[in-house]
Design a protein around this nucleic acid. Structure first.
Lengths: 188, 188
DNA sequence: CAACAAAAAATGAACGTTCATTCATTTTTT
DNA sequence: AAAAAATGAATGAACGTTCATTTTTTGTTG
């Protein structure tokens, strides 16, 4: 069994269950079924561990979401595909969402790394650029488009995880997707 | 000078500057210009202090934003007013935004209190209900509307604070406001 | 107004706990 | 049997909280 992965998974589970505030090395070790010292064979310390996990999730996310991007598909299809994959990514593993949310504002990372936070937004940027070139997406500032797409997705997932809505219900994701598309596209 | 307020302000400043993770009582005391023990004259402990600050900000926010709500104004005016006030609230005191963001996902609070997180959304709910009654706002699920309004606002402020956009630029707020209104209203 | 005393507020050193990290020892693999 | 991996008790630093002591405020009296 891969202990490095087991340790990372433990952090993910614990951060989601108890929050960053209650996270400690002994718990991580216990959850992963290893000794506390073992963690230091794979990571340089707590900070390094947290940062490694973040980097892993971001990489996975971008890989999954960009896989939905077809060079030959039109902008709307790409948008729908990417939204679907992004939502599914977090619904399948809510721990990922919870971790990213908490990490973003809990600077384990130093200032220099803060830029990495915006890596998560790359897929959206790519789609927007194309849509504007083809006059399909509204001519409003990129940051406004971004805030609508990314912000609304973020919030709907939060609402879902807080059981204020249920994205697994038939048609729920589609309704959301379409509402956002109508919000950002010229014709609707 | 009101020490209780000074202590709360210190927490706000420190959380914004260094994050929850690096917050400790000694720093809070130093920043407020009091002794560590003094904090315990006004609060029952760290957790209580944090929760009190959160409650204060939410109360302020709702007061400020709901003050922009006119019983006789139409839905669009109310929406514009409330968006303006909400954005200004956070731009004027970015520490408030940073604190709320971090608090939401750092459960100092217990499960029972988690519901309070949604108090922040009350002004938006109020506006939505009216708009739907008058057939001005699109007939899409409340949660979707909410995610567009709240989520996009959240994200645009994050982008502003990260200097990816500048909401203080002439017309920037208006452009954003109008884009969101077009996204949620029937006629645009 | 000054002098004093009682009460209230504030202090910060000390305490006990928690926790990240280390490393001598043990277990497993090669 | 040598090398590599894993262990977990020990260490020391950090931190929240307490409380005996000091400082400030309030109230009273001559």
């Amino acid at each position: 069994m891969d202990k490095k992965q087991a340790i990372l998974k433990s952090v993910l589970k614990l951060v989601n269950r108890e929050g960053f505030y209650h996270l400690n090395m002994k718990k991580i070790a216990a959850e992963a079924g290893v000794a506390a010292g073992t963690i230091y064979l794979y990571f340089n310390g707590k900070e390094d561990l947290i940062n490694a996990l973040y980097a892993m999730i971001v990489a996975e996310f971008n890989q999954v979401v960009l896989a939905g991007y077809g060079e030959n598909s039109d902008v709307k299809d790409n948008f729908f595909n990417m939204m679907d994959r992004a939502i599914d990514f977090y619904l399948k593993e809510p721990d990922n969402f919870s971790f990213i949310e908490q990490y973003t504002y809990a600077p384990f990372l130093f200032k220099e790394n803060q830029e990495e936070n915006f890596l998560l937004l790359l897929p959206i940027y790519k789609m927007m650029r194309l849509g504007k070139e083809q006059n399909i997406i509204k001519d409003i500032p990129d940051t406004v488009l971004l805030s609508i797409i990314h912000g609304s997705m973020n919030t709907i997932i939060k609402l879902h995880l807080a059981r204020k809505t249920d994205l697994r219900q038939k048609g729920a994701k589609q309704k959301f997707r379409e509402a956002i598309w109508e919000a950002i596209s010229r014709t609707g």
